[in-house]
Protein backbone atom coordinates (compact mmCIF):
# COMPACT_ATOMS: atom_id res chain seq x y z
CA UNK A 1 0.00 0.00 0.00
CA UNK A 2 1.15 3.48 -0.84
CA UNK A 3 -0.88 5.35 1.73
CA UNK A 4 0.63 8.40 3.40
CA UNK A 5 -0.73 10.64 6.10
CA UNK A 6 -1.39 14.00 4.49
CA UNK A 7 -1.24 17.14 6.60
CA UNK A 8 -2.14 20.73 5.79
CA UNK A 9 0.01 23.07 7.90
CA UNK A 10 -1.89 26.33 7.90
CA UNK A 11 -1.28 29.85 9.16
CA UNK A 12 -4.66 31.49 9.74
CA UNK A 13 -4.85 35.11 10.76
CA UNK A 14 -2.36 37.85 10.10
CA UNK A 15 0.67 37.06 12.21
CA UNK A 16 3.87 36.41 10.31
CA UNK A 17 5.62 34.21 12.85
CA UNK A 18 6.05 31.02 10.89
CA UNK A 19 9.11 29.61 12.62
CA UNK A 20 6.98 27.07 14.49
CA UNK A 21 4.85 26.17 11.48
CA UNK A 22 7.91 25.60 9.34
CA UNK A 23 9.75 23.57 11.95
CA UNK A 24 6.66 21.41 12.43
CA UNK A 25 6.22 21.03 8.67
CA UNK A 26 9.75 19.75 8.31
CA UNK A 27 9.48 17.45 11.28
CA UNK A 28 6.28 15.96 9.86
CA UNK A 29 7.97 15.47 6.52
CA UNK A 30 10.84 13.71 8.26
CA UNK A 31 8.30 11.50 10.01
CA UNK A 32 7.09 10.32 6.61
CA UNK A 33 4.03 12.53 6.18
CA UNK A 34 3.06 14.47 3.10
CA UNK A 35 2.89 18.10 4.11
CA UNK A 36 1.22 20.96 2.34
CA UNK A 37 2.10 24.34 3.82
CA UNK A 38 -0.29 27.19 3.03
CA UNK A 39 1.93 30.15 3.78
CA UNK A 40 0.88 33.21 5.76
CA UNK A 41 -2.41 35.08 6.14
CA UNK A 42 -4.84 32.37 5.14
CA UNK A 43 -8.51 32.93 5.74
CA UNK A 44 -10.66 30.10 7.15
CA UNK A 45 -12.23 29.82 3.70
CA UNK A 46 -8.86 29.31 2.04
CA UNK A 47 -7.73 26.77 4.61
CA UNK A 48 -10.96 24.81 4.25
CA UNK A 49 -10.81 24.76 0.48
CA UNK A 50 -7.14 23.71 0.46
CA UNK A 51 -7.94 20.91 2.92
CA UNK A 52 -10.76 19.75 0.68
CA UNK A 53 -8.82 19.80 -2.57
CA UNK A 54 -5.83 18.08 -1.02
CA UNK A 55 -8.02 15.60 0.87
CA UNK A 56 -5.74 15.85 3.88
CA UNK A 57 -6.10 13.69 6.96
CA UNK A 58 -4.98 16.46 9.27
CA UNK A 59 -5.27 20.23 9.38
CA UNK A 60 -2.61 21.69 11.70
CA UNK A 61 -3.00 25.41 12.40
CA UNK A 62 -0.43 27.70 13.96
CA UNK A 63 -1.39 31.07 15.35
CA UNK A 64 0.51 33.40 17.64
CA UNK A 65 -1.54 36.55 17.49
CA UNK A 66 -4.27 35.64 19.96
CA UNK A 67 -7.00 35.32 17.36
CA UNK A 68 -7.32 31.56 17.93
CA UNK A 69 -10.66 31.72 19.72
CA UNK A 70 -12.18 33.34 16.66
CA UNK A 71 -10.38 31.56 13.87
CA UNK A 72 -9.83 27.95 15.00
CA UNK A 73 -13.53 27.20 15.64
CA UNK A 74 -14.44 28.86 12.38
CA UNK A 75 -12.11 26.57 10.44
CA UNK A 76 -13.47 23.50 12.24
CA UNK A 77 -17.03 24.45 11.42
CA UNK A 78 -16.29 25.16 7.77
CA UNK A 79 -14.40 21.91 7.33
CA UNK A 80 -17.22 19.88 8.88
CA UNK A 81 -19.79 21.77 6.82
CA UNK A 82 -17.95 20.74 3.67
CA UNK A 83 -18.43 17.10 4.62
CA UNK A 84 -14.94 16.39 5.91
CA UNK A 85 -16.10 14.60 9.02
CA UNK A 86 -12.96 12.66 9.85
CA UNK A 87 -10.34 15.32 9.29
CA UNK A 88 -8.23 15.65 12.41
CA UNK A 89 -7.90 19.31 13.33
CA UNK A 90 -5.16 20.47 15.66
CA UNK A 91 -3.75 23.83 16.65
CA UNK A 92 -0.68 25.37 18.18
CA UNK A 93 0.85 28.66 19.23
CA UNK A 94 0.71 31.09 22.10
CA UNK A 95 -2.56 29.84 23.50
CA UNK A 96 -3.44 30.25 27.18
CA UNK A 97 -4.41 27.04 28.97
CA UNK A 98 -7.71 28.61 29.88
CA UNK A 99 -8.70 28.74 26.21
CA UNK A 100 -7.95 25.10 25.49
CA UNK A 101 -11.18 23.51 26.83
CA UNK A 102 -13.22 25.92 24.71
CA UNK A 103 -11.20 25.10 21.61
CA UNK A 104 -11.60 21.39 22.26
CA UNK A 105 -15.34 21.81 22.66
CA UNK A 106 -15.30 23.55 19.30
CA UNK A 107 -13.72 20.49 17.71
CA UNK A 108 -10.00 21.19 17.85
CA UNK A 109 -8.66 17.77 18.83
CA UNK A 110 -5.46 18.96 20.42
CA UNK A 111 -3.74 22.23 21.20
CA UNK A 112 0.05 22.32 21.37
CA UNK A 113 1.57 25.18 23.33
CA UNK A 114 5.15 26.52 23.24
CA UNK A 115 7.81 24.01 24.19
CA UNK A 116 5.97 21.01 22.78
CA UNK A 117 8.45 18.61 21.14
CA UNK A 118 7.59 17.90 17.51
CA UNK A 119 7.65 14.21 18.47
CA UNK A 120 4.52 14.70 20.58
CA UNK A 121 2.69 16.21 17.63
CA UNK A 122 3.76 13.35 15.38
CA UNK A 123 2.69 10.76 17.95
CA UNK A 124 -0.64 12.46 18.45
CA UNK A 125 -1.33 12.46 14.73
CA UNK A 126 -0.29 8.83 14.28
CA UNK A 127 -2.52 7.76 17.16
CA UNK A 128 -5.56 9.79 16.26
CA UNK A 129 -5.67 10.03 12.50
CA UNK A 130 -8.49 8.15 10.83
Amino acid sequence: MEKRIRVLVAKPGLDGHDRGAKVVARALRDAGFEVIYTGLRQTPEQITEAALQEDVNVVAMSLLSGAHNTLFPKVVKMIRDKGMKDTLIIGGGVIPDADIPGLKDAGVSAVFTPGTPTGSIIDFIKTNVK
Partner: peptide, 16 residues
Amino acid sequence: GYDSDDAIAEGEIGKV
Protein backbone atom coordinates in the same frame (compact mmCIF):
# COMPACT_ATOMS: atom_id res chain seq x y z
CA GLY B 1 -2.48 48.24 6.35
CA TYR B 2 -6.05 47.10 6.95
CA ASP B 3 -8.76 48.99 8.80
CA SER B 4 -10.57 47.38 11.69
CA ASP B 5 -13.72 47.01 9.59
CA ASP B 6 -11.94 44.88 6.98
CA ALA B 7 -13.12 41.24 6.97
CA ILE B 8 -9.53 40.02 7.18
CA ALA B 9 -9.08 41.83 10.51
CA GLU B 10 -11.59 39.55 12.21
CA GLY B 11 -10.28 38.26 15.52
CA GLU B 12 -7.08 40.29 15.29
CA ILE B 13 -8.21 43.78 16.31
CA GLY B 14 -6.24 45.06 19.30
CA LYS B 15 -4.66 41.64 19.93
CA VAL B 16 -0.91 42.11 19.61
